[in-house]
Design a protein around this nucleic acid. Structure first.
Lengths: 245, 245
DNA sequence: GAGTGGTCTAGACCACGGG
DNA sequence: CCGTGGTCTAGACCACTCA
C-alpha cells in the first residue's frame, strides 16, 4: 500500500495538495483490513510525504520553502540574479512576521554549557523567541548568555531590542568579532515539537551560533531551530574571499 | 506509553545504547495489548529516539556526530581550540573511508536543472558517489554537469580523480570562482533512504552547491545528502571578513 | 530453537471538525 | 449530524538472528 502510493507521489501522479482515498476506500482497494492500511499511511506520514487533516482525509504535503541567510548580520549580501530565479515567490517578503519573547534564568542545556564554557552550577540567561509567519510557527530562536555577564542589563527584559541584542552585548563591553556556526538536521525534541506545533515526519534544521569576543571569550550561544519544510539556508562564497584576515 | 519512555530518554534516565523492555513486558507494565504498545514504540522510533534491533529488542539511539566543513575547498580553516574541545573523538579521523562512484547521463532532476539552467530535453552528467565510513553508508555526493560541457572528458570516467573534479573542470576551461550553497533538512526520498540504508526517524541534511565560472555560468551542481544523525556542518566567520570584494 | 519484532485480521468505540 | 481519522482489544502467524 505504502509502496504504491509512495511512487504515485514521487512520480508526480499525485501532486502536493491532492487528497488520498479514505482509509475505507484504501481498505477495499487493497482488499485488506483498516489496521493494515493505517500502518501503510503512517509510514508515508513519517516519511513526510502526506499529512492527515482530520476529518478531511490525507493530503500530499506541500513544501513552501523560504530562503534564509544566516550570516546577514555580518555579511550584507546582494541578491544575485540566479538566486532571484530560485526564490521566486518563496521569500518571506510580503508575509506577516510576529514573534513572542520570553526570558528565563536557568542552568544551561548541555551543548550550550559546553560552548559557553559554563561551570557546573552556574546559570545562563535564556532569551527565547518563537517567530511566526502569518500566525503559524516558523522557527525558534533561543539565545543564551552567561548570567553574570548581563546581570541587570536590558537583555533580561522580554521585549524586542531594536538595535539588536548583539549590539546591546557590545555596549556592555562584549563585542563579538568571531562566530562558529554549526548546522545539523534532526527530529525535533518534544519541547521543540510543541513550540513549533510539528507533527511526525517533520525534521528541523538546527543552526547553532557561538559568538566570541576579541579575547576569544564565548559570550553568546544562539540556537535556531528551523522547520525543515519551511526553510532553506542560503550562503554565497567566492574564490577571492579572504578569511581570517 | 510513548510519553513515559520519551521522558525517560530525554531526562537521561535511559542513556543511549540502553535496551528498552520487550513489547511483551511493556504490554504487562501498562496492562494493555501488544498492538497499543507497538504504536507507542513506533512513535518513538519515528521521533528518532529509539531503534529496533531485531531480535535483540529496542535500543535508545546513539548519535555519533562527525564535523564536516563544507567550504574547505576554498577556505582552509584552522581548527580552533574551542572546536577541538567539541569535536573530541567525533571526527572522521582514524576511521576508514571508502567510496563507490558511478556515472550516468540523464535528464537532470528538476532542482538541478533549474540551477544549471538546462533547457528542456538537454542532458546532464551525474557523477554519483556513496561514501562509507567503516563500511557503513555515510553520505551521498552527487555532482551534475551539463553534458555538452564535459563530453569526452575524464569526468565521465567512474573513477576517482585525484586532483579533484573541480580542477578537471577548470582544466577544460571552466574554472569556478563563485558558489551558492543551499542547506535544508528533510526526510530522505525513497531512493536516498535505500542508498544510505536509512530507517524511519532519520532525517537528512541536504547541502546543494552550485558553482559558477567568472562569467557567471553555472557549470556544476553538487548535491550532498548527509545522514542527519552523523553530521554537523561547521563554519566560522569573523567580523573582519571581506565578502564580495 | 527460542525469543525478538513484523505483519495481519476483525472487530469496537472515541474525538474532532466542517456543513 | 456525519464522516473522517485516532485509539484500542485480542487474537494469529511469520521472519529474522543470535547463541
Amino acid at each position: 500500500m505504502a509502496d504504491v502510493y509512495r511512487s504515485k507521489i514521487v512520480s508526480d501522479e499525485l501532486s502536493p495538495g491532492d487528497r488520498l482515498p479514505t482509509e475505507q476506500e484504501l481498505t477495499e482497494e487493497f482488499s485488506t483490513t483498516r489496521g493494515t492500511v493505517r500502518e501503510g499511511l503512517k509510514v508515508l506520514v513519517n516519511e513526510g510525504l502526506i499529512e492527515p487533516a482530520r476529518p478531511r482525509g490525507y493530503f500530499v504535503r506541500r513544501h513552501e520553502l523560504s530562503y534564509v541567510r544566516p550570516q546577514s548580520e555580518w555579511r550584507p549580501q546582494p541578491v544575485s540574479p540566479e538566486m532571484d530565479r530560485w526564490m521566486e515567490d518563496q521569500t518571506v517578503l510580503g508575509r506577516e512576521p510576529t514573534q513572542h519573547i520570553s526570558v528565563e534564568i536557568i542552568p544551561p542545556p548541555s551543548k550550550v554549557g559546553e560552548r559557553l564554557g559554563i561551570a557546573k552550577g552556574d546559570l545562563v540567561v535564556a532569551r527565547r523567541r518563537i517567530r511566526y509567519i502569518d500566525g503559524e510557527p516558523f522557527n525558534l530562536n533561543d539565545s543564551f548568555y552567561p548570567y553574570d555577564l548581563i546581570k541587570g542589563s536590558e537583555i533580561l527584559n522580554p521585549a524586542d531590542i531594536p538595535r539588536g541584542s548583539n549590539q546591546a552585548l557590545a555596549d556592555l563591553g562584549y563585542e563579538q568579532v568571531r562566530a562558529i556556526d554549526e548546522v545539523e538536521a534532526r527530529m525535533p525534541l518534544p519541547d521543540e515539537a510543541n513550540r513549533l506545533q510539528l507533527g511526525p515526519g517533520n525534521p528541523v534544521l538546527v543552526h547553532r551560533v557561538t559568538g566570541f569576543t576579541i579575547d576569544d571569550r564565548p559570550v553568546r550561544c544562539t540556537v535556531n531551530v528551523l522547520i525543515g519544510s519551511k526553510h532553506v539556508m542560503l550562503f554565497e562564497r567566492s574564490k577571492s574571499t579572504k578569511v581570517e584576515g
